[in-house]
Every structure is written in structure tokens, then in C-alpha cells.
């Protein structure tokens, strides 16, 4: 059967909100710590302001993570700083991330967002690129650089 993605209906906002409010708060806590609640409210207000202009109901999860990332970066008064890297891509297994995730607070914000979205929320690099307003390559480089930094921090603490 052909999936008619172009006409995938936009769910009522309430259903969208209930579906994502908890994991967006979790994500913002990782980026902002105690300041996450204000950013969380701002994220869903921005989503609501834009909601009736959506053209379809696809990729809403990636969309709300993009808004949350923008709000967090605004809060940190930062433009995403994308590392330029010629180094080989560093990846993590999910289990390894669980061991290292308590150290993500020490990463620069863009790397932190990339690593958390990739390994904490399983977003594809194309979606992380949207969230960071970057190319897919740059998103991959940010996550990779974050992973290397996590490993170095972990070794220092070990």
C-alpha cells in the first residue's frame, strides 16, 4: 500500500502535547538543568503558536526537539557552535551512553544537544541537523566530538 505521507493528518494539539511533554522536559533538563521548566513551557508555547500552520503531521517528534533545542540555545545565549573535525567519527553503543550520560553536562551545549538527541532520544542525524540548524555532516561531527570528549572525561575520572 502506498503511504500517503503528504496527507498524514495533524493530530489535535492535546495528543501531540501528551505524547512528547515528558521526554522534551527530560531533554531540556539534560541541556539546562534547573532552568529546564521555563524552557519547557516556552517550547510548547512556540509549538502551539506554529501548530495551525503545519502542513502535515509527519516528524512531529523531531520538530518539537528542534524547537526545544532552539529554546535551550537561546537560553544559553549561544548560536550552535559546530566543531570542524577531520577526525574519524566516534560512535557509542547505547549501553556505553548510559554509563557516560551523567557527564554530558560538561559538554559544550551544541555537542551536548547532538549527543543527547542521538544516543538519548535516538534521532537520526538528519533530524539532529534540523534541530541544530546545521548540515547532517556537521551534526555528525558535533556528536562525534561530544563522544570523544565524554570518553576523555570518563578516562580522567576513572
Amino acid at each position: 500500500m502506498m503511504g500517503n505521507v503528504a496527507t498524514e493528518p495533524i493530530p489535535p494539539f492535546e495528543r501531540f502535547y501528551l505524547g512528547y511533554r515528558d521526554e522534551v522536559l527530560g531533554y531540556l533538563r539534560r541541556l539546562l538543568g534547573q532552568r529546564a521548566e521555563d524552557a519547557w513551557q516556552e517550547t510548547f508555547l512556540r509549538a502551539l503558536r506554529a501548530y495551525d500552520r503545519l502542513e502535515h503531521g509527519r516528524h512531529l517528534r523531531a520538530w518539537v526537539f528542534t524547537i526545544a533545542t532552539n529554546v535551550a540555545m537561546d537560553d544559553l545565549r549561544l548560536k550552535p557552535q559546530l566543531p570542524v573535525s577531520g577526525e574519524p567519527v566516534a560512535e557509542l553503543h547505547r549501553d556505553a551512553f548510559r554509563e557516560l550520560e551523567h557527564l554530558t553536562g560538561d559538554l559544550p551545549p551544541t555537542e551536548r544537544a547532538a549527543v543527547v538527541l542521538r544516543y538519548g532520544y535516538d534521532l537520526a542525524y538528519a533530524q539532529i541537523a534540523d534541530a541544530l540548524g546545521s548540515s547532517e555532516e556537521a551534526a555528525r561531527a558535533a556528536a562525534s566530538s561530544g563522544v570523544r570528549r565524554l570518553r576523555r572525561t570518563h578516562e580522567r575520572h576513572a
Binding site: 495533524i10 489535535p12 494539539f13 502535547y17 495551525d52
Partner: peptide, 15 residues
């Protein structure tokens, strides 16, 4: 009923 509301009044449906 939320779907019906979205169709008639708009998608910004909130409890």
C-alpha cells in the same frame, strides 16, 4: 472527540 473538534474548530485543541 478531540479529532472531531480539530476538524471543525482547528487543530489547536487543548484540555
Amino acid at each position: 472527540q478531540e479529532d472531531e473538534l480539530a476538524r471543525i474548530f482547528g487543530v489547536r485543541v487543548l484540555r
